[in-house]
């Protein structure tokens, strides 16, 4: 079991993640699916409002699954 920590992305980290073109296999498959959907949403509307919405969605996922997503968060902050 992974440790439970509070992890939050900021808008700059979210932007980097949304614009990342490489492959990342996350432990939580939902994160790959969410990222794919949000990439499409951000590509269609690259505004600060959309970015903030994406950040909020990622952080809600991290918040909910903090016990099992620490390694996923660590991968993102290393980008």
């Amino acid at each position: 079991m992974e440790r439970r920590v509070i992890v939050k992305l900021n808008d700059a980290q979210t932007k980097k993640l949304l614009e990342y073109t490489g492959s990342i296999q996350f432990k939580q498959l939902a994160l790959n699916m969410m990222l794919t959907r949000l990439k499409g949403m951000y590509k269609a509307n690259q505004t600060s409002v959309t970015l903030a919405k994406c950040t909020a969605e990622f952080n809600a996922l991290f918040d909910k699954f903090a016990r099992i997503m620490q390694s996923d968060y660590d991968q993102i902050v290393k980008l």
Partner: peptide, 8 residues
Amino acid sequence: GDYSGAGI
């Protein structure tokens, strides 16, 4: 399908 690194 390539879902940002996961294969579907």
